[in-house]
Every structure is written in structure tokens, then in C-alpha cells.
């Protein structure tokens, strides 16, 4: 399986990433992808922009470990993860997970699993600018419960 993880300020092109993921891999029958966007509101306040901080070194390590966990559990041919950092405005793309596999079931499941793990295990932090000033985003309990779902299903 080929995999690639990037932490970058630059935007990304979903079509180009999917083409690169499947290039020369003619046994791939499915690609599932997820793109996360910056919302213009959160917890009842308007969001003008946000800044993403991360832990260089650990971030890449954590993302690679999450991809490896997925590859252990589903038949995958390729995985591409891109997470942006730095200054972002509403409507901008923030994260990409794309997974290729012989069949769709594995691709759907692995894509969701990687996103759920990333939300609680990869060291990124968002700081939003709202009308009341800057604030660090609080972690959501629903993200922890999304992870628990996988623990129940596949015994992690």
C-alpha cells in the first residue's frame, strides 16, 4: 500500500490528489474521500477566520500511525492525508483524506476511521477570531464518542 501524509499551509486540489492516488493502480475499484471546510460559525458565534497550530514532527508521526492502523484493518491500495495549518478563512479547505481500495466498503470505512482518529489523536489546535475576540476551540465530546464507536466495532 502506498501512503502519503502532508502538513502544509498551501491549499490542495482534490481531483489532482485522487488522480495521483490511483495512477497506475488498476486494481483499485473505489476511492472514498473526505474534505473538511472552515465553517463561518461555531458554538453560536460568527467566525471571521482561524489559525491552526500544530506540533511539528509529532503531527506527521501521529497521522502516519493512524494510516497504518487503517491499513491493518482494511484492504487498502493507497491513502493520502493532507492537513493545512496557519491562517484560514471560512469556506477554505482544511483537511483531505482519500482512500483507494479494490471495493467501496473498505474505502468508505477506512476514510471515516482515519478522520475520526485524526480528530482526537493528531496534535492540531484551532484558534478562531469571533466578534468577541480570539478563542481556542474546545474539543467536542462527540469526537470522543466517534472514536468509541470504532473501539466497539473493531476492538481497538
Amino acid at each position: 500500500m502506498k501512503s502519503s501524509v502532508s502538513v502544509q499551509e498551501a491549499d490542495f486540489d482534490l481531483s489532482a490528489e485522487v488522480r495521483a492516488l490511483t495512477a497506475g493502480e488498476l486494481s483499485a475499484g473505489a476511492v472514498a474521500s473526505f474534505v473538511g471546510l472552515v465553517r463561518d460559525n461555531n458554538d453560536g458565534a460568527g467566525v471571521a477566520d482561524m489559525t491552526l497550530e500544530h506540533y511539528p514532527g509529532m503531527t506527521e508521526k501521529a497521522l502516519n500511525e493512524i494510516v497504518a492502523k487503517a491499513a491493518d484493518r482494511w484492504e487498502l491500495l493507497g491513502v493520502r492525508v493532507i492537513h493545512r495549518v496557519g491562517y484560514l478563512k471560512p469556506g477554505e479547505q482544511i483537511v483531505l483524506v482519500a482512500v483507494s481500495s479494490p471495493h467501496r466498503g473498505n474505502a468508505f470505512a477506512a476514510c471515516e476511521f482515519i478522520m475520526d482518529y485524526l480528530k482526537t489523536q493528531a496534535p492540531f489546535w484551532k484558534k478562531e477570531s469571533t466578534s468577541e475576540g480570539g478563542r481556542w476551540v474546545d474539543a467536542r465530546d462527540s469526537d470522543e464518542s466517534a472514536l468509541d464507536k470504532w473501539k466497539d466495532q473493531i476492538g481497538l
Binding site: M58, A122, P123
Partner: peptide
């Protein structure tokens, strides 16, 4: 917390030479 770039429980042992990080729950994605 993380020790040498692995997220760990606070009960984890540390030793000379380690890199230890403290942070709030993560909010990426």
C-alpha cells in the same frame, strides 16, 4: 501530554533526554 511525540497518559514515566509536551485536547480536522 506526549512523551517523545507519542500521546500518553500522565502516569507515564519520563527520563533524562526525553521531549515532553503539554497541551489541551486536540481540535484538528
Amino acid at each position: 501530554a506526549a512523551v517523545n511525540q507519542d500521546m500518553v497518559p500522565l502516569t507515564t514515566a519520563i527520563k533524562d533526554g526525553d521531549e515532553i509536551a503539554f497541551f489541551p485536547p486536540v481540535t484538528g480536522g
